[in-house]
């Protein structure tokens, strides 16, 4: 009980602090914080037939997924800031495979997901390769690689596979048999949420209970010791980055198959899934199960932000401000014991 409290004490206080600062911001911009937070709460959880709660859960799927992507890399001491590019390439690949593979759906569906994971994973290998062979800091190369990935996906969807019927910068819609079923009709809650849960469970088991997971944790805590202990650091690093990118690719595939049913230019980047997920990973100290909690929380803050904007005219971007302040406050308390590998 006491250790449990110690684990959540930091994040809890940081969240409280950020809500207080948020209240101050609302006051300064001429709004009533009680009204603001009330609208935020109902925007996140209430609604007719708890529709807002369903939205929060549906939005949590990509956030938790991208949180997992970041957490896997962070735990091993790699600052993978390239989640966005890995996510976009995964999504693009999923749409292209789902649209063009002439196989029965029962085969196409898993192949789509695997192809998306491979795309995200391979893109994430690039910064690892550059770090191991040329000492290019992974933090920077992974971030810079987001831009070419995004522009490339945009080029493909605008110029090569654009849906001629709508004329919008998006692909055609994928076949109905490939679309993930909705769990509750009339909401956005789709079966992909379960896939995310399974991914979290697998990551928790692998990191917590296997030799590879032990090495990954050691590499993150003390790279020199891990190398001395005989862990194959480079192979581990490639494995970790591939897994991290593959999770991002999976998130892309789920969004295509379960939400958008097609690849839409910028649909995966505008909601900032990769960055919110990264913050969820930081807040949970990169624990997969913790990411589930913090991802849900950040998702609620975001959907709550939409509700708040509808009800009170406080701009929804306050959510993004609150999230960043949470991370700043946790960081201020020395809540991150990452090796900080550049």
């Amino acid at each position: 009980m006491q250790t449990a409290w110690r684990n959540i004490q930091g994040p809890a206080l940081a969240i409280l602090g950020s809500l207080l600062i948020g209240a101050l911001i609302m006051l300064l911009s001429g709004h009533n914080p009680i009204e603001g937070y009330g609208a935020m709460l109902s925007g996140a959880l209430a609604g007719r037939n708890a529709a807002n709660l369903a939205s929060t859960l549906a939005r949590a799927a990509p956030i938790v997924g991208m949180g997992l992507c970041a957490a896997i890399a962070f735990r091993a001491g790699f600052f993978n800031l390239g989640g966005e590019g890995q996510l976009v390439l995964g999504g693009l690949t999923a749409a292209l495979v789902a649209l063009n593979l002439p196989l029965p759906p029962v085969l196409t569906l898993p192949l789509t997901v695997l192809a998306a994971m491979a795309a995200g994973g391979v893109w994430a290998l690039l910064p690892a390769w550059a770090q191991f062979n040329f000492r290019v800091p992974l933090l920077i190369s992974s971030l810079l690689l987001n831009y070419p990935a995004r522009f490339f996906a945009s080029y493909v969807v605008v110029n090569l596979v654009r849906d001629v019927q709508t004329g919008m910068p998006q692909t055609r819609q994928i076949a109905p048999e490939l679309q993930l079923p909705l769990l509750i009709t009339g909401t956005q809650l789709h079966a992909g949420v379960f896939v995310t849960l399974i991914a979290v469970a697998i990551a928790a088991l692998v990191i917590g209970r296997t030799v590879a997971g032990y090495r990954l944790r050691m590499a993150g805590l003390n790279p020199t010791f891990a190398r001395y202990g005989g862990a194959p650091m480079e192979r581990l690093g490639y494995g970790v980055m591939f897994a991290s990118g593959a999770v991002a690719g999976l998130v892309g595939a789920i969004e295509i198959l379960g939400v958008n049913y097609r690849f839409i230019d910028e649909a995966l980047t505008i909601p900032q899934y990769a960055w919110v997920g990264l913050m969820a990973a930081l807040l949970s100290n990169s624990s997969p199960v913790g990411v589930l909690m913090t991802g849900l929380f950040f998702s609620a803050v975001q959907t709550g932000g939409f509700g708040m904007e509808r009800a009170t005219e406080i701009p929804r971007e306050l959510s993004r401000v609150l999230q960043a302040i949470v991370i700043l406050l946790v960081a201020a308390r020395g809540g991150f014991r990452l090796s900080g590998d550049r």
Binding site: F79, L81, L139, W275, L278, M279, L282, P315, E317, L318, S319, R320, V321, Q323, A324, I325, I327, L328, A331, A332, R333, G334, F336, L338, G340, R342
Partner: peptide, 23 residues
């Protein structure tokens, strides 16, 4: 002052400003 992790603080500040300027 508080000896926080510079990388984490840097990332969080970038995100704070990105959201804050739109706000």
């Amino acid at each position: 002052g508080l000896r926080g992790n510079m990388i984490v603080i840097g990332i969080a500040l970038n995100l704070l400003v990105a959201g804050g300027t739109v706000f």
